[in-house]
């Protein structure tokens, strides 16, 4: 395994994932004049404000109108621009899925859909704003790339990478601060999954904020005599089937961890792939067909069964099923 230049858990920092996107878009905008940014009245909280301040002539405020947000972007992409559209995931793609499908994905226009404030890390805003279904609904759309970065540095790199890629893309961001596990040297490529912790007994596949919990769970599992391999898979689609296959061929048991509905997300993608190619036990850790509620991210992670403890229980369950 090549060196991923990851930080030891004791050296992890903390920063909201969305911050990395904001910096990434400003830097991408400096490199490529075709990049434009559109926002639906959430400029500061989506962090698109950094771009807007530096390139006001390339910033388009569409107001609270998410259907218009992506359809205007579709028109701009048709004329050669690379539009980044930002809102909360609950509204985009939550409200405008059909417009994204017809005018961006089927139309195959190079529009980037940035879903900020996704998942339980949205915290006190409650269920309406904690978008948990976005990964599932975006993943089933042909032509659409789906990326869920694990920390702010990766979000920065992912933003630069999707700016250079012609495909329609959904990029999922979290609101509250979460661990920084990577460094500037850690690689990111669209469609690549990375082995954060090597192991032999079990494969834990994770993305988003909860990748950090998966890494911590693997450390503790080692004391339970389970040698778990942690794969961070920021790209949900196209899934890095090769990396997953190689790992699971060796471990024969899988736990998937994501801060989203268990139905249809990364867990769905992994289960679909493995059931047709390498059937093994797959235990999915995520929200179980429920809506969120107000609380701190930490409280919610515990309440909905996504904590390190829950990941460890899922790991034991998966390993037990091998026998």
């Amino acid at each position: 395994m090549s060196n991923l230049h990851l930080l030891d858990t004791k050296d992890w920092g903390l920063e909201p994932i969305r911050k990395g996107f904001g910096r990434g878009l400003a830097d991408a905008g400096a490199k490529n004049e075709q990049i434009v940014a559109l926002c639906a009245d959430l400029t500061s909280s989506t962090q698109i404000s950094l771009f807007a301040e530096q390139f006001p002539e390339r910033f388009v405020e569409v107001g609270i109108a998410e259907q218009n947000l992506v359809t205007v972007a579709s028109g701009m992409a048709a004329m050669g621009k690379i539009p980044f559209t930002a809102s909360y995931a609950a509204f985009s793609p939550g409200r405008n899925w059909e417009q994204i499908k017809t005018t961006v994905a089927l139309n195959n226009q190079n529009v980037k859909i940035i879903g900020a404030h996704a998942g339980l890390y949205t915290g006190p805003d409650g269920a309406t704003h904690q978008m948990l279904e976005d990964v599932a609904i975006m993943r089933v759309m042909p032509n659409m790339v789906v990326i869920v970065p694990g920390d702010s540095l990766e979000a920065y790199k992912a933003t630069l990478a999707i700016a250079n890629d012609p495909r329609p893309t959904y990029l999922r961001l979290a609101r509250d601060k979460s661990p920084i596990m990577t460094t500037d040297q850690t690689p990111f490529e669209i469609g690549k999954a990375y082995i954060y912790t090597p192991g032999h007994d079990l494969t834990i596949i994770a993305n988003g904020t909860v990748t950090s919990l998966a890494v911590q769970a693997a450390e503790s599992l080692f004391k339970d005599a389970i040698d778990a391999e942690v794969i961070h898979s920021p790209t949900v689609k196209p899934l890095d089937e090769e990396t997953i296959y190689k790992s699971v061929k060796k471990t024969r048991a899988v736990v998937v961890v994501e801060e989203a509905q268990r139905a249809g997300g990364l867990g769905g993608a992994v289960s679909e792939f493995l059931s047709e190619n390498l059937p093994v036990p797959v235990v999915r850790v995520g929200v179980r067909d429920q809506y969120g509620q107000s609380g701190t991210p930490e409280q919610l992670i515990h309440h909905y069964g996504l904590s390190k403890h829950h990941i460890m229980m899922a790991a034991h369950h998966a390993v037990d099923m091998k026998k």
Partner: peptide
């Protein structure tokens, strides 16, 4: 110039194109 059928999206796409023509 575009894919359409589900109603209501063409004017926004046209607006995005018209805005881009102005930028260009």
């Amino acid at each position: 110039e575009n894919t359409s059928g589900p109603l209501g999206s063409g004017l926004s796409q046209g607006a995005g194109m018209a805005l881009t023509m102005r930028m260009n």
